[in-house]
Amino acid sequence: MVNKEYILKRLGLAVLVMFGVYTIGFTLTFVAPGNPAQAALGQKANKEAVEALEEQWGLNEPLPVQYKNYLINFINLDWGESFRYRGESVTGILASRYPKTMYYAVWSLVFAIVMSIPLGLIAAYKQNTWVDNLSVLVSQVGISIPNFWLGMLIIAILAVWLDLISVVPDVPTGSLWSFPGFFTHVTDYFGIIITLGTALMARNTRMTRSSTLDVLSEEYITMARAKGLKERTVVLKHALRNALIPVVTSIGFNLLLLFGGAVVVETVFGLNGIGKLYIDSIIRRDYPIIIALLLTYTIGVVFVNLIIDISYSVIDPRVQLR
């Protein structure tokens, strides 16, 4: 099971990963053409003003110095001010954006898991019946349909035509993560949750189905039946837990894709979350935001991976975390 040594080792590795991501991310951001000061002041701004702003932002320093400064400031939790939203702290901006994205990401994941695991399981158990065909259809369509298209479809049908949901969820960020706001605001974010969750749900249905099919043909399933166990026990106790082993890995991996999807969905739904902030910051060359997003996101990825590895060892006793 999980021991302290293992966690420490993983944390050490995490530091290395962060360092690598920071180096690559910094290089790509700063080497790409474009001048943030010019972008902030506009193309017609005079040269002196641009140079003054560059100095204020430390952009006139040599790159290695800037590389060092950003890293040290990040570690000291002194993330500075945004280039684009002058006078606003990076911390403040992230604090207002992250909760929204996390909110619908969590619900998309819940939606995907709650839909896909039973569907995949039943489809495999009733292979070649209508349930199975339905699951294959759902996963095929879900995987094929692009997020932005599904998003627009949902807006057109649910928001415009049937007037069931509002396109842009207008909810104070604070109440999203409170009780009972966490549950009641699902309706506000319904369109986004479905749009983002569908691809994950589709992939996961397929994964659950195929891994359950493999498990159901195992000898220990025959053995469980030979013991006279009820079908429900055979499937839910003996098959499901084994079938979940590859599914857990796949969920972890897809969770990371979910954040990629956030960029698209937020653009389509006009939601000011992390995805939209990312795109806007890159376009406006808002270096402090880009670096802060990059590093916080990496921390998230590392953390999610750790959780997955631990849950993996909980499901499968053969996995020893070392």
């Binding site: 000898e219 053995m223 469980a224 030979a226 013991k227 166990l229 003996h238 084994n242 006793p317």
Partner: peptide, 18 residues
Amino acid sequence: GKDITYIPQDPSSSLNPV
């Protein structure tokens, strides 16, 4: 499992690993 029990061919794959 009560009146008639079964001993399968391969003990290694007949016990649930988890």
